[in-house]
Design a protein around this nucleic acid. Sequence first.
DNA 1: CTCCTCACG
DNA 2: ACGTACGTGAGGAGA
Length: 406
Amino acid sequence: MIRVYTKIDLPLAPALYRMEQAGIRIDLAVLDGLSKRFALELERVGERIFELAGRRFNVNSPKQLGEVLFTHMGLPAPMVRGKGKVVSTAQDILEQLAEAHEVPRLVLEFRHLSKLKSTYIDSLPLQADTESRVHTTFQAAATATGRLSSVNPNLQNIPIRTELGREIRAAFVAAPGMQLLSADYSQIELRLLAHFSQDPLLVRAFANNDDIHTLTASEVFGVPAESMDKETRNRAKAVNFGIVYGISPFGLAAQLGIPQAEARAYIDRYFARYQGVKEFIEKTLETARSEASVRTLFGRMRPIPDIQSRNPNQRGFAERTAINTPLQGTAADLIKLAMIALDRKLAEKKLKTRMLLQVHDELVFEVPPEEAAEVETLVRTEMEGVVALRVPLIADLGFGQNWRDL
DNA sequence: CTCCTCACG
DNA sequence: ACGTACGTGAGGAGA
């Protein structure tokens, strides 16, 4: 671990310091506009919920909401949990109920609006400095895998997955006369899986820069790539994520909303096709058992004490952790090395470009227009060339005035 | 302070 | 029989 410390985490520290000092500019007028829009919409959706439910209550209270949905309204409660809590009002449960009832659909809409308003729209302006910039703290020794974390505020979980949430990214802007540049690694964990496993199908696919989810769909479901629908590709995407997480029939079934037996059949098909991956997982588990730990490509170690547990549940957790950690942890090591190299190059070349954010597989920079061409080449070269693997590393880059449009 | 929920990769 | 997808941080409710 001395090598990990001296080659990665120690030299990263000054780069993180400069990123924290720089901060990123937010457009207060954009957030102010969103706050007013969201307030009106929350009012409208809330009143409609009260109307249909026949009573007024705090929609943000899971306790009160559970009483209204499952006792007062008599909706079926599919999930029974441990003692104390009778029902879950979590998203996946409400999504099932929403197929048949208006109220759970409206509750989901209310929750979405409420989450975005309180966590981002209304809180970020309170944390901005006199130049409207927000400065996160990157915790460098917080996670079990070697990732960074971001606190006060967390700038690693700014919304992007929904259109409504994405609007918030428009409030993250370049300083006057500057541009934002985002550069993210494409499928880095699956590329690392290909590297570690040397699975011929995976290695060949990445060598050709093929769509990996489409490939898995073809292999597992037997559908030709040409006639593939979105739904089939999405199921295969869930399978690929599952592999990286340390797959289980239960987890895959829950994610896809299918019976466990069906999920088990998908997994069996996957391992029949990707035998190198199957062998990689078996070898990784054997090492985890004999060492009671696993390591990243660069030697970063994570103890896995529960790998020998007689409790099957704890052991299952440990096994999935043992599979996931070398992938997630090596990806974390790689982007840290790229950050160290880029921080040094920017200083060496006396560029005005500043590195602002890291979001696990993405880096965000603030770039003066006259440096755009040089920085684009520099960032791509350093990220893709950080280490030579059995498959190519690819970074996707985009410029924009804000974090939504790039 | 804990629990539930949900935002991200 | 048990009961789980991997890694995080933050807000609101309620004790």
